[in-house]
Amino acid sequence: MLSLRAMNFLAGTWVGEWLVGLGRITLLSREAIASASTFKFSRRDVLYQIYFIGIKSQSVVIVTGAFTGMVLAAQTYFQFHKVKMDTATLAVVSVSMCSELGPVLTALMVAGRVGAAIAAEIGTMRVTEQIDALRTLATHPTDYLVVPRLVASIIAVPLLTVESMIVGIAASYAVAVGLLGIDPAYAWWNMLKYSGDVDVMIGLIKSVFYGGIIAMVGCYKGLSCSVGAEGVGRATTEAVVYSSITILICNFFLTLVLEHICIILGL
């Protein structure tokens, strides 16, 4: 157990601030999950947020997915061609897009677009006393601001991830077959043989976590931002940086845990 002296020392350091922030975001997440589980949130607000997070992020996600798939196909082909394994190109692309690159790159792009917007919107509401106004109108900010964004993000990010997987694989197929001259039948057959439902499943489970991280970090940074334009600016930047870092760290641990579960279940 930490002594009082050690805790006092930590309180003034970035480690202490990081621990306090972690504690607060955990409490906010608990409050939001408890509130969401009552299903008393506004369906209209959730639909609007799905539109904002999901529909409006499509162009970014499609472009990212397509070019990631294309470059992955080209790079894999150039390496595999040396050992005469050209037809395995799409299998590598498919597994990568489904279980790693699709969910991670989608989440990073959405964190950049949506996480920043959430933090800026809620931060501006905070500095203009709109959040205090919500509270005086007997409305809990978590119920009204956090829960719709959390629910929408958990729904929208997996859907965007699926879109990214499809676009990435389609683009890689076009590059592999149309540009690099790989035999389409063998490429397709190998892809289906070496990638399966479990890869898609791992990607989708990851994307649910990433959706939650984007919404919670954005909301937390907005709700806790300091007064003034500088405070909103800092909250916006920190929302993107912290959610991106958290996604990358979580990706490593989720990969280990999910792959281990797959091994145990024999999938």
Binding site: M125, T128, E129, A133, L137, A138
Partner: peptide, 30 residues
């Protein structure tokens, strides 16, 4: 506190209107 706050109405110095809503939506919020 939410239950107690239903006894109150508050007018803020800067009005604190919800800028993403129209006047009618602001007034009807409660």
């Amino acid at each position: 506190l939410l239950r107690v706050r239903r006894k109150f109405g508050m007018v803020f110095q800067g009005a604190a209107l919800f800028d993403s809503m129209t006047v009618a939506e602001n007034v009807a919020f409660g």
